[in-house]
Simulated scan of single mutants.
Amino acid sequence: MTDPYIPLEDQLLYTRGALEIIDRNGFGVTLITKSSRVLRDLDVLKSIQTHSKCVIQMTLTTYDEDLCKILEPNVSTTKERFETLLTLYKEGIPTIVWLTPILPFINDNEGNLRGILDYCIKAHVKGIICFDMGVTLREGNREYFYSKLEQHFPGLKETYINKYGNSYILSSPQNKHLMRIFHQVCEENGIMHNHEEIFNYLRTYEDHRLNLLDFI
């Protein structure tokens, strides 16, 4: 599994080819990416949306651009992804945001959350998926994660070990407070925030060609 818009896609055009097959055969599509490269295929996405359903999902976790470049190197920054979401909205393509993972003691703060939510409001996203303010660590990726903590946040590895040990789920100490804000802001702005409701929306096919006259 990988992002469908890795840099090599500029030469391979595999994702575009797959989208063209989907479009040609009348299917709908949803994909999830961290790349503004998705706009390269806007023409195909819009074509799919005219006869079926096209939803683009995008991950946003870190409002601060400098911090984003540390946590998510080699992908579009959060601001670039926000601008991509806004363009998709203006072109009639609905979007869903994944607000995960949130890293304890790094970006698990109210300022970061409100910045991301403000981007989502401005981009008119249909829904935001957030199960919890935290991160999961499996054996194998835990070691890699800790090595990066040592590199970019000296001393934080010990804080993680002391608090979480070898736990799989690492919830932020601010989880309850931040989740209250998340649900409240989404509710106030008409953004779906129940993940089951969002998954239902993604599974539901809406035929834009249907007309009430067809049933008379």
Rank of each mutant, 00 (worst) to 15 (best):
R138W: 11
K122T: 09
L117G: 05
L117H: 10
I121L: 06
L45R: 04
Y201A: 01
L170A: 05
K90M: 04
P104T: 09
G165T: 00
F215E: 08
N112W: 00
I161M: 12
N109W: 08
T61P: 07
L156C: 03
D132M: 13
T30Q: 03
Y14A: 10
M1K: 11
Y89R: 12
R40G: 09
L60S: 06
L86T: 04
C68S: 15
M192V: 06
Y63F: 09
I32L: 14
L103D: 07
S167L: 06
R203Q: 06
L156I: 07
N74C: 02
Y89A: 15
S52H: 03
R40E: 09
H177Y: 09
I169G: 00
H195C: 03
D207I: 14
L88I: 07
S167N: 10
R24A: 14
S147R: 14
I21V: 15
F82V: 00
L170V: 13
G17E: 10
V97M: 08
F145C: 05
N194P: 01
L39S: 10
E187D: 10
N107F: 07
F182M: 02
R81A: 03
Q57L: 06
N194D: 13
G155V: 06
L213F: 04
F131K: 14
I22S: 11
C120T: 15
L42N: 12
I181T: 11
I198S: 01
V97K: 09
E20L: 13
E188I: 10
S52C: 06
D41F: 01
K148P: 04
E187T: 11
Y201V: 02
E91V: 15
G190C: 14
L31G: 11
K163D: 09
D43E: 14
L60R: 02
E206D: 12
R81D: 06
K34W: 10
R203T: 05
